[in-house]
């Protein structure tokens, strides 16, 4: 098991090096930053000086290594547009995105699993069929459209919830700001969280349903019934745990996707998170911000997947190395 984890960590590092290379190559190939940073009235000396100052005159591998070294220390350079360190800007924006992602992730997982189990157990019931049909809407409608529809209904027509922004926030500790503690903050969270989580929820629900139906056909479920166990025990103890084995992987990937998809939701609701920051960075070709965002997302994806792999070992005893048994 130790060698398994070491191998997975090795693979994760490889993935990060490759995304790092992609992020870094943006500096080289997406326009010349010098052009962006210095105005029209520049001298050749200015250009050379800045080039040397930024290390752009060094060979490619040296620059790449330097970039990795800085990135590992959380130093992504200075935003071309705002003139502040990128890490500082990201850190300022991260709490908004993370709070949104956590809430919609929890919504998606909780409702997704509950509805999935319900529709699997009552697979011929009216309610289950209505839920399945409705879930198609969640899968097929694009996120921005759902967001706009929700804004139209709850903000414009009913006027219950705010249509944009994060509401009032409270500072916690040095840099974290939270919207969980104010009424307007919580209200502002509702629509974006639903918009962001709806697709993941329907996906998880449909996956849980089909996995559970598969598991319910297994011999050990028949045998559990033949032993006279209660339906509840059979469904929630025996079937559910086996259902979760493949579902955990997908949930892990989807949590990563929630953070990545936040771009669209944040744009629709003008949510002051890293996604909105990224969109603005693209508009202004603010490459350090784009590169840092790319790295941040890949670190999260890789990290979540690593956690999922380790979780697997806890769920499924067959993956634990154990020489005590045998024949």
């Amino acid at each position: 098991m130790l060698s398994f984890i070491i191998r997975r960590i090795g693979q994760s590092v490889l993935v990060l090096l490759i995304t790092g290379l992609i992020a870094f190559s943006m500096f080289r190939f997406v326009g010349d930053p010098i052009d962006n940073m210095l105005g029209q009235e520049r001298t050749l000396e200015d250009v050379e000086r800045l080039r040397a100052q930024l290390g752009l005159d060094q060979p490619f591998p040296v620059q790449y290594f330097k970039f990795l070294e800085n990135a590992a220390q959380g130093n992504f350079g200075v935003s071309y547009r705002q003139g502040r360190p990128v890490a500082e800007i990201l850190l300022e924006r991260a709490p908004a995105t993370l709070e949104l992602a956590i809430v919609s992730g929890l919504l998606a997982v909780a409702f997704g699993i509950a509805l999935g189990v319900f529709t699997a157990i009552r697979r011929n019931g009216v309610a289950a069929n209505v839920i399945m049909a409705t879930s198609l809407i969640g899968v097929s409608l694009p996120t921005f459209l759902i967001g706009i529809l929700l804004i139209y209904l709850f903000s414009v027509e009913l006027g219950w919830l705010p249509s944009f922004g994060r509401g009032d926030t409270v500072a916690l500790g040095g840099w974290w700001t939270t919207g969980f503690l104010t009424e307007s903050g919580l209200k502002a969270l509702v629509l974006p969280a639903i918009t962001l989580g709806l697709y993941q929820m329907t996906l998880i629900m449909r996956l849980v349903r089909s996995e559970m139906l598969e598991v319910l056909r297994q011999d050990y479920i028949r045998f559990a019934r033949a032993r006279g166990l209660k339906e509840r025990t059979v469904n929630f103890r025996h079937a559910l745990k086996n259902t979760m084995v493949p579902v955990v992987t997908v949930i892990g990937l989807q949590l990563g996707a929630i953070i990545a998809f936040a771009i669209i939701t944040e744009t629709v609701f003008q949510w002051p998170g890293v996604g909105l920051l990224f969109i603005n960075a693209i508009q202004f070709v603010d490459i350090p911000v784009m590169a840092a965002y790319l790295m941040l997302i890949s670190v999260m994806f890789v990290g979540i997947n690593l956690i999922v792999d380790i979780l697997y070992v806890f769920i499924d005893p067959r993956l634990r190395v154990d020489r005590a048994g045998g024949h």
């Binding site: 297994q218 011999d219 050990y220 028949r222 045998f223 559990a224 019934r225 033949a226 032993r227 006279g228 166990l229 209660k230 339906e231 025996h238 745990k241 086996n242 084995v245 769920i315 499924d316 005893p317 067959r318």
Partner: peptide
Amino acid sequence: MRALRGKKISMIFQDPLTSLNPLFT
């Protein structure tokens, strides 16, 4: 029927590999 199953009448299936839930001791 459930009260009877396993208590008065038990069943053994063909494949011992699939009759037991792999995730429980």
